[in-house]
Design a protein around this nucleic acid. Sequence first.
DNA 1: TCCGCAATATGAGATATCTCATATTATTGT
DNA 2: ACAATAATATGAGATATCTCATATTGCGGA
Lengths: 223, 223
Amino acid sequence: MEIYKNEKRQRYLEEYSIGYLFTFRIDEFLEVHEYKRDEWIIQEGTRPDFLFYVIEGKAKIYVTHQNGKVSLINFINEEDFFGEMELLNPIYYTKGVQASTKTVCFAIPFHRCRAKMLEDATFLRELAKFLSVKSTQMAAKYTQSLSFPLENRLADFILQTADGEVYKEKHVTVCDFLGVSYRHLLYVFAQFCDKGYLQKEGRRYRILQPNELNGLARVLMNE
Amino acid sequence: MEIYKNEKRQRYLEEYSIGYLFTFRIDEFLEVHEYKRDEWIIQEGTRPDFLFYVIEGKAKIYVTHQNGKVSLINFINEEDFFGEMELLNPIYYTKGVQASTKTVCFAIPFHRCRAKMLEDATFLRELAKFLSVKSTQMAAKYTQSLSFPLENRLADFILQTADGEVYKEKHVTVCDFLGVSYRHLLYVFAQFCDKGYLQKEGRRYRILQPNELNGLARVLMNE
DNA sequence: TCCGCAATATGAGATATCTCATATTATTGT
DNA sequence: ACAATAATATGAGATATCTCATATTGCGGA
């Protein structure tokens, strides 16, 4: 982890200003942190000292279960907060957050800003909006996972994450995210290839029939 | 649905004051609504006109999927909000909310209070806290549902909802909540009885070995 | 009181998904 | 450049869960 100082810090503060999210002057409190790919930004089970706001890169939220299984709860993208649970709730089991790519965040120190943030209607409104979206998404994912087989959820995931007509996510990550075994994930990929929806190219897949995938994915949605 | 007026309304305002959740005077805006058991408080897919706060009774949030399956997303209990998604997000697919028992709520009209609420740091802080807990719970339920078989989740549910050593939830509701088929739910209940954890009494179950259930349930938790 | 619907129950067969074992490739650190 | 580790791949067998068919039981409304 690297902390940007002076001009470099200043450059980020100007380029990615988040002043509009607050009523008070936040800039003087902001630290700018850079994390390398695969670096853990927050360790599972420990309490972070900052509220984070992602400005470049992306990250993943993980939890480890008692049976050793790991779940990828969600992806964190640019303009997302994390660490907000610890800001609001005195007791909370902290999930692990790992950078998927080089990631630059604003880090807002709790000890200097907690009180101010918790009094700031502008910030709280944005935070509440962010949380309501997050909670809705989780609820949707939850009910979908219980109501539809992997086929549908995977079709959706492929379309969401494809880069043009090329899909190239790592299977191991997807297993944790969709909550299925590696073996089963491959079965369903094989089916999609058999049916001609996808074509395997090395370790990527080319989407040949997006409409078919769309049909499978659309079934999930209404929300 | 019945709207309490005059003295009856006044009595509720005094007995269950929620003034502490707001900086501005909320009382004059509050309506007091009573819903009968099984009545729909919010219709799925329509926009409500109120933010609700439950003072007596409980309710259930439902969503209907395209394949006809119904998911019970969550229970709403006393002191919970609902309708907050519609307060914060201009576009949102509204879930259905149904009273499980006779339910009395404060109903805060959007058209008169939205602007005030969205400026009120006290209210927004409470709302953010409520949402963060909700979102955390959903995330937990989501990952648990993907990581553990029904056996564990049902054990937890039985202990959470049992009245002393008697469990008496309706199977059909539990199916929607835990996202499993009626058939499978009964299989697992039969297993619990076989193993001597539960004993069937008419259409209730007596918990004979809470420790065994606890062992199954504890595996879920770390959060 | 009786009818009809909702809830409960149970069997049989299908399928979605998991576990484990074992190979074969990438990728990464030194 | 090589060894170690992570990721991909595939088979075989188990099990968690679903669908559908069919009965039985409880309960609220006419």
